[in-house]
C-alpha cells in the first residue's frame, strides 16, 4: 500500500487555475499519506502561496510535489521553481507584511511557518527555486 503513496508529480503553473489545481492535488496527496487535516491544510496553503508567487512575479514556472511514504519519517516535499526575475533581497522578501504585489505579504514567511523545512535559492535575472518539506509525525 505504502509504495503507491510515493509520488513525483509536476504541475505547470501559469494561471490562477493552475494554482488551485496544485494546492488541491497537494491536499489530496497529504491526506492519502496520512497527514491529518490540519497538516494537509498547511501543505495546501503553502503550495498556494508559492504557486501564486510564480504567477505574480515570474508569469510561469512549476510546482513539483514529491512524497516518500517509505522514508523514515515519511515526508512530502514541494519544489516551486521559475525562471523569473529572482529576488534581490531575500531577507526583505521574507519579512512579514512586506509585499510588492496585491497579497498580504505573508507568502514566503507564512510558507516557512506552515512547513517544517524551508529552503530558497534565487538569483536575480535567473529565477527562484523554493523547497519546502513537511514530515509525517
Amino acid at each position: 500500500m505504502s509504495s503507491e503513496l510515493s509520488v513525483d508529480e509536476i504541475t505547470a503553473i501559469e494561471t490562477v487555475n493552475d494554482v488551485s489545481a496544485a494546492r488541491r492535488r497537494g491536499m489530496t496527496i497529504a491526506l492519502e499519506m496520512g497527514f491529518d487535516r490540519a497538516d494537509a491544510t498547511r501543505i495546501a496553503v503553502a503550495i498556494s502561496e508559492l504557486a501564486r508567487n510564480i504567477v505574480v512575479y515570474a508569469n510561469q514556472g512549476m510546482i513539483r510535489i514529491t512524497s516518500d511514504h517509505n522514508a523514515e519519517p515519511p515526508y512530502i516535499q514541494v519544489i516551486a521553481s521559475d525562471n523569473g526575475p529572482g529576488i534581490d533581497d531575500v531577507d526583505l522578501a521574507m519579512t512579514d507584511h512586506w509585499t510588492s504585489s496585491r497579497g498580504l505579504g505573508l507568502g514566503l514567511s507564512g510558507s516557512r511557518r506552515l512547513m517544517d523545512d524551508f529552503n530558497i535559492e534565487t538569483e536575480v535575472g535567473r529565477g527562484t527555486t523554493i523547497t519546502v518539506t513537511k514530515w509525517l509525525k
Binding site: 487535516r37 490540519a38 494537509a40 498547511r42 505573508l106 514567511s109 507564512g110 511557518r113 506552515l114
Partner: peptide, 14 residues
C-alpha cells in the same frame, strides 16, 4: 471556519 483553516490562517499571520 473549520478548525484546520483557523490554525492555518493564524500560522500564516492572517
Amino acid at each position: 471556519l473549520q478548525d484546520a483553516v483557523i490554525e492555518t490562517m493564524v500560522e500564516l499571520g492572517m
